[in-house]
Protein backbone atom coordinates (compact mmCIF):
# COMPACT_ATOMS: atom_id res chain seq x y z
CA UNK A 1 0.00 0.00 0.00
CA UNK A 2 1.36 3.39 -0.96
CA UNK A 3 2.15 6.07 1.59
CA UNK A 4 -0.53 8.21 0.01
CA UNK A 5 -3.17 5.58 0.64
CA UNK A 6 -1.94 5.08 4.17
CA UNK A 7 -2.22 8.79 4.87
CA UNK A 8 -5.69 8.66 3.42
CA UNK A 9 -6.73 5.93 5.84
CA UNK A 10 -5.22 7.74 8.76
CA UNK A 11 -7.05 10.93 7.87
CA UNK A 12 -10.24 8.93 7.46
CA UNK A 13 -9.64 7.40 10.87
CA UNK A 14 -9.13 10.80 12.43
CA UNK A 15 -12.36 12.10 10.90
CA UNK A 16 -14.27 9.16 12.31
CA UNK A 17 -12.63 9.58 15.70
CA UNK A 18 -13.55 13.26 15.72
CA UNK A 19 -17.13 12.44 14.82
CA UNK A 20 -17.44 9.88 17.60
CA UNK A 21 -15.53 11.65 20.34
CA UNK A 22 -16.36 15.28 19.79
CA UNK A 23 -19.59 15.42 21.82
CA UNK A 24 -17.87 13.45 24.57
CA UNK A 25 -14.98 15.90 24.59
CA UNK A 26 -17.49 18.72 24.77
CA UNK A 27 -19.34 17.37 27.80
CA UNK A 28 -16.02 16.68 29.54
CA UNK A 29 -14.88 20.22 28.80
CA UNK A 30 -18.19 21.62 30.00
CA UNK A 31 -17.95 19.67 33.24
CA UNK A 32 -14.56 21.25 33.90
CA UNK A 33 -15.79 24.79 33.51
CA UNK A 34 -16.23 26.99 36.52
CA UNK A 35 -19.74 28.30 37.03
CA UNK A 36 -18.80 31.72 35.73
CA UNK A 37 -17.32 30.17 32.62
CA UNK A 38 -20.38 28.12 31.71
CA UNK A 39 -22.07 30.88 29.79
CA UNK A 40 -18.93 32.21 28.13
CA UNK A 41 -19.77 30.32 24.95
CA UNK A 42 -16.38 28.75 24.21
CA UNK A 43 -15.61 25.11 23.73
CA UNK A 44 -12.80 24.92 26.27
CA UNK A 45 -12.85 26.42 29.75
CA UNK A 46 -11.58 29.97 29.41
CA UNK A 47 -10.47 30.45 32.98
CA UNK A 48 -8.70 27.16 33.53
CA UNK A 49 -9.96 23.80 34.69
CA UNK A 50 -12.16 23.65 37.71
CA UNK A 51 -13.17 20.55 39.64
CA UNK A 52 -16.03 22.36 41.36
CA UNK A 53 -18.73 20.48 39.49
CA UNK A 54 -17.26 17.14 40.45
CA UNK A 55 -16.86 18.03 44.08
CA UNK A 56 -20.44 19.32 44.04
CA UNK A 57 -21.88 15.96 42.98
CA UNK A 58 -19.38 13.70 44.73
CA UNK A 59 -18.93 15.37 48.08
CA UNK A 60 -21.00 18.55 47.95
CA UNK A 61 -24.68 19.31 48.29
CA UNK A 62 -25.66 17.25 45.24
CA UNK A 63 -23.91 14.12 46.48
CA UNK A 64 -26.98 13.04 48.44
CA UNK A 65 -28.75 12.87 45.13
CA UNK A 66 -26.01 11.57 42.90
CA UNK A 67 -24.23 8.92 44.94
CA UNK A 68 -27.32 6.87 45.79
CA UNK A 69 -28.36 7.14 42.14
CA UNK A 70 -24.99 5.87 41.02
CA UNK A 71 -25.20 2.98 43.45
CA UNK A 72 -28.74 2.20 42.27
CA UNK A 73 -27.73 2.30 38.63
CA UNK A 74 -24.85 -0.07 39.16
CA UNK A 75 -26.76 -2.44 41.39
CA UNK A 76 -29.97 -2.55 39.39
CA UNK A 77 -28.25 -2.85 36.03
CA UNK A 78 -25.87 -5.55 37.21
CA UNK A 79 -28.63 -7.62 38.76
CA UNK A 80 -30.88 -7.18 35.73
CA UNK A 81 -28.00 -8.19 33.49
CA UNK A 82 -27.21 -11.19 35.59
CA UNK A 83 -30.79 -12.43 35.70
CA UNK A 84 -31.38 -11.90 32.03
CA UNK A 85 -28.15 -13.63 31.04
CA UNK A 86 -28.93 -16.47 33.41
CA UNK A 87 -32.46 -16.99 32.06
CA UNK A 88 -31.54 -16.55 28.43
CA UNK A 89 -28.60 -18.91 28.75
CA UNK A 90 -31.04 -21.78 29.18
CA UNK A 91 -33.43 -20.44 26.60
CA UNK A 92 -30.65 -19.94 24.07
CA UNK A 93 -29.32 -23.41 24.72
CA UNK A 94 -32.74 -24.87 24.08
CA UNK A 95 -33.17 -22.81 20.92
CA UNK A 96 -29.75 -23.62 19.57
CA UNK A 97 -29.56 -27.26 20.44
CA UNK A 98 -32.96 -28.75 20.94
CA UNK A 99 -35.69 -29.37 18.48
CA UNK A 100 -39.04 -28.48 19.92
CA UNK A 101 -42.18 -26.79 18.71
CA UNK A 102 -42.53 -23.24 20.01
CA UNK A 103 -38.98 -22.27 19.19
CA UNK A 104 -40.20 -19.84 16.59
CA UNK A 105 -42.81 -18.57 18.98
CA UNK A 106 -40.17 -17.80 21.61
CA UNK A 107 -37.94 -16.01 19.13
CA UNK A 108 -40.95 -14.18 17.75
CA UNK A 109 -42.01 -13.12 21.22
CA UNK A 110 -38.50 -11.87 21.90
CA UNK A 111 -38.68 -9.83 18.72
CA UNK A 112 -42.08 -8.45 19.68
CA UNK A 113 -40.87 -7.48 23.13
CA UNK A 114 -37.78 -5.85 21.66
CA UNK A 115 -39.85 -3.50 19.50
CA UNK A 116 -42.30 -2.75 22.27
CA UNK A 117 -42.83 0.95 23.04
CA UNK A 118 -41.82 1.22 26.68
CA UNK A 119 -44.01 4.25 27.21
CA UNK A 120 -47.11 2.13 26.50
CA UNK A 121 -46.60 -0.09 29.49
CA UNK A 122 -45.24 2.34 32.03
CA UNK A 123 -48.59 3.42 33.42
CA UNK A 124 -50.06 -0.06 33.90
CA UNK A 125 -46.78 -1.17 35.44
CA UNK A 126 -46.84 1.82 37.75
CA UNK A 127 -50.36 0.97 38.89
CA UNK A 128 -49.46 -2.65 39.46
CA UNK A 129 -46.22 -1.84 41.26
CA UNK A 130 -47.84 0.49 43.74
CA UNK A 131 -50.48 -2.13 44.48
CA UNK A 132 -47.97 -4.86 45.21
CA UNK A 133 -45.40 -2.58 46.80
CA UNK A 134 -42.74 -2.71 44.13
CA UNK A 135 -42.90 0.99 43.33
CA UNK A 136 -39.62 2.75 44.03
CA UNK A 137 -37.75 -0.45 44.86
CA UNK A 138 -34.88 -2.22 43.16
CA UNK A 139 -36.98 -5.19 42.01
CA UNK A 140 -39.47 -2.66 40.66
CA UNK A 141 -36.88 -1.58 38.13
CA UNK A 142 -35.08 -4.88 37.67
CA UNK A 143 -38.20 -6.64 36.42
CA UNK A 144 -39.05 -4.08 33.72
CA UNK A 145 -35.39 -3.92 32.73
CA UNK A 146 -35.67 -7.61 31.90
CA UNK A 147 -38.11 -6.65 29.15
CA UNK A 148 -35.29 -4.61 27.61
CA UNK A 149 -32.44 -7.04 28.17
CA UNK A 150 -34.03 -10.48 27.78
CA UNK A 151 -34.98 -10.34 24.08
CA UNK A 152 -31.54 -9.12 23.17
CA UNK A 153 -29.84 -11.71 25.35
CA UNK A 154 -31.85 -14.56 23.88
CA UNK A 155 -31.16 -13.52 20.30
CA UNK A 156 -27.51 -12.80 20.78
CA UNK A 157 -26.76 -15.85 22.82
CA UNK A 158 -28.68 -18.30 20.67
CA UNK A 159 -26.71 -17.05 17.68
CA UNK A 160 -23.50 -17.60 19.61
CA UNK A 161 -24.54 -21.04 20.78
CA UNK A 162 -25.37 -22.13 17.25
CA UNK A 163 -21.72 -21.75 16.36
CA UNK A 164 -20.47 -23.96 19.13
CA UNK A 165 -19.32 -27.34 17.81
CA UNK A 166 -21.39 -29.35 20.25
CA UNK A 167 -20.13 -32.63 18.83
CA UNK A 168 -16.85 -31.95 20.63
CA UNK A 169 -18.63 -32.72 23.84
CA UNK A 170 -19.43 -36.22 22.64
CA UNK A 171 -15.87 -36.58 21.36
CA UNK A 172 -14.55 -35.76 24.81
CA UNK A 173 -16.90 -38.27 26.35
CA UNK A 174 -15.67 -40.90 23.94
CA UNK A 175 -12.16 -40.01 25.07
CA UNK A 176 -13.17 -41.01 28.57
CA UNK A 177 -14.31 -37.77 30.15
CA UNK A 178 -17.41 -37.82 32.30
CA UNK A 179 -20.44 -35.85 31.18
CA UNK A 180 -19.66 -33.16 33.72
CA UNK A 181 -16.00 -32.99 32.75
CA UNK A 182 -16.89 -32.82 29.09
CA UNK A 183 -19.28 -29.98 29.78
CA UNK A 184 -16.89 -28.09 32.02
CA UNK A 185 -13.73 -28.55 30.00
CA UNK A 186 -15.15 -28.32 26.49
CA UNK A 187 -18.47 -26.54 26.39
CA UNK A 188 -18.01 -23.92 29.07
CA UNK A 189 -14.87 -22.41 27.51
CA UNK A 190 -16.61 -22.37 24.15
CA UNK A 191 -19.79 -20.79 25.44
CA UNK A 192 -18.25 -18.34 27.89
CA UNK A 193 -17.30 -15.63 25.38
CA UNK A 194 -20.83 -15.52 24.01
CA UNK A 195 -22.33 -15.32 27.48
CA UNK A 196 -19.91 -12.63 28.50
CA UNK A 197 -20.49 -10.55 25.39
CA UNK A 198 -24.22 -10.81 25.84
CA UNK A 199 -23.82 -9.61 29.40
CA UNK A 200 -21.95 -6.49 28.30
CA UNK A 201 -24.54 -5.55 25.71
CA UNK A 202 -27.40 -6.24 28.11
CA UNK A 203 -25.70 -4.01 30.65
CA UNK A 204 -25.50 -1.18 28.10
CA UNK A 205 -29.20 -1.45 27.38
CA UNK A 206 -30.15 -1.41 31.05
CA UNK A 207 -27.72 1.42 31.77
CA UNK A 208 -29.35 3.50 29.03
CA UNK A 209 -32.90 3.30 30.38
CA UNK A 210 -34.67 6.55 31.15
CA UNK A 211 -38.44 6.06 30.91
CA UNK A 212 -38.69 3.33 33.56
CA UNK A 213 -36.24 5.27 35.70
CA UNK A 214 -38.31 8.44 35.81
CA UNK A 215 -41.67 6.68 36.03
CA UNK A 216 -41.19 3.88 38.52
CA UNK A 217 -39.00 5.53 41.14
CA UNK A 218 -39.36 8.53 43.36
CA UNK A 219 -36.55 8.61 45.90
CA UNK A 220 -32.91 7.79 46.32
CA UNK A 221 -34.01 4.27 47.26
CA UNK A 222 -34.05 3.20 43.63
CA UNK A 223 -33.67 6.19 41.33
CA UNK A 224 -31.03 5.52 38.67
CA UNK A 225 -28.60 8.10 37.32
CA UNK A 226 -30.35 9.03 34.04
CA UNK A 227 -33.45 9.94 36.03
CA UNK A 228 -31.38 11.78 38.63
CA UNK A 229 -29.77 13.98 35.98
CA UNK A 230 -32.99 15.96 35.76
CA UNK A 231 -33.08 16.55 39.50
CA UNK A 232 -29.99 18.55 40.12
CA UNK A 233 -30.54 22.11 41.15
CA UNK A 234 -28.34 25.10 40.68
CA UNK A 235 -27.18 27.30 43.52
CA UNK A 236 -30.82 28.18 44.03
CA UNK A 237 -34.17 27.00 42.74
CA UNK A 238 -34.04 28.99 39.53
CA UNK A 239 -30.40 28.58 38.58
CA UNK A 240 -29.61 26.05 35.89
CA UNK A 241 -27.53 23.08 37.07
CA UNK A 242 -25.59 22.80 33.81
CA UNK A 243 -22.25 22.09 35.48
CA UNK A 244 -23.61 19.40 37.79
CA UNK A 245 -25.39 17.66 34.93
CA UNK A 246 -22.26 17.72 32.80
CA UNK A 247 -20.12 16.27 35.59
CA UNK A 248 -22.65 13.54 36.35
CA UNK A 249 -22.93 12.78 32.64
CA UNK A 250 -19.19 12.31 32.43
CA UNK A 251 -19.15 10.00 35.43
CA UNK A 252 -21.86 7.71 34.06
CA UNK A 253 -20.12 7.63 30.72
CA UNK A 254 -16.80 6.45 32.14
CA UNK A 255 -17.86 2.83 32.86
CA UNK A 256 -19.32 2.29 29.40
CA UNK A 257 -16.29 3.82 27.73
CA UNK A 258 -14.02 1.50 29.69
CA UNK A 259 -16.16 -1.49 28.71
CA UNK A 260 -16.03 -0.41 25.09
CA UNK A 261 -12.28 0.09 25.07
CA UNK A 262 -11.54 -3.21 26.74
CA UNK A 263 -14.09 -5.37 25.01
CA UNK A 264 -14.67 -3.63 21.69
CA UNK A 265 -14.03 -6.70 19.65
CA UNK A 266 -16.43 -8.87 21.58
CA UNK A 267 -19.11 -6.19 21.57
CA UNK A 268 -18.96 -5.83 17.81
CA UNK A 269 -19.12 -9.58 17.49
CA UNK A 270 -22.08 -9.66 19.82
CA UNK A 271 -23.98 -6.87 18.09
CA UNK A 272 -23.53 -8.50 14.72
CA UNK A 273 -23.51 -12.01 16.08
CA UNK A 274 -20.15 -13.18 15.11
CA UNK A 275 -20.61 -12.20 11.50
CA UNK A 276 -17.63 -9.88 11.48
CA UNK A 277 -14.20 -11.32 11.21
CA UNK A 278 -11.11 -9.37 11.98
Amino acid sequence: MSTKEKTGWIIGGIVIALYALFPIAWIVSLSLKSSADLNAGGFLPATGFSWDNYSLILTGSASDLFLPALRNSFGICLIATFISVFLSMFAAYAIARLDFPGKKFILGTALGVAIFPVISIVTPLFNLWRQIGLYDTWPGLIIPYLSLTLPLSIWTMSAFFREIPWEMEQAAQVDGATTWQAFRKVIVPLAAPGVFTTAIIAFFIAWNDFVYGISLTSTGASRPVPAALGLFSGASQFEDPTGAIAAAAVIVTIPVVILVLVFQRRIVAGLTNGAVKG
Partner: peptide
Protein backbone atom coordinates in the same frame (compact mmCIF):
# COMPACT_ATOMS: atom_id res chain seq x y z
CA UNK B 1 -29.01 -8.18 48.05
CA UNK B 2 -31.35 -5.80 46.39
CA UNK B 3 -33.68 -5.81 49.34
CA UNK B 4 -30.94 -4.80 51.70
CA UNK B 5 -29.86 -2.03 49.44
CA UNK B 6 -33.34 -0.78 48.96
CA UNK B 7 -33.65 -0.28 52.64
CA UNK B 8 -30.32 1.44 53.00
CA UNK B 9 -30.97 3.70 50.07
CA UNK B 10 -34.17 4.96 51.54
Amino acid sequence: DSVVHTGRGR
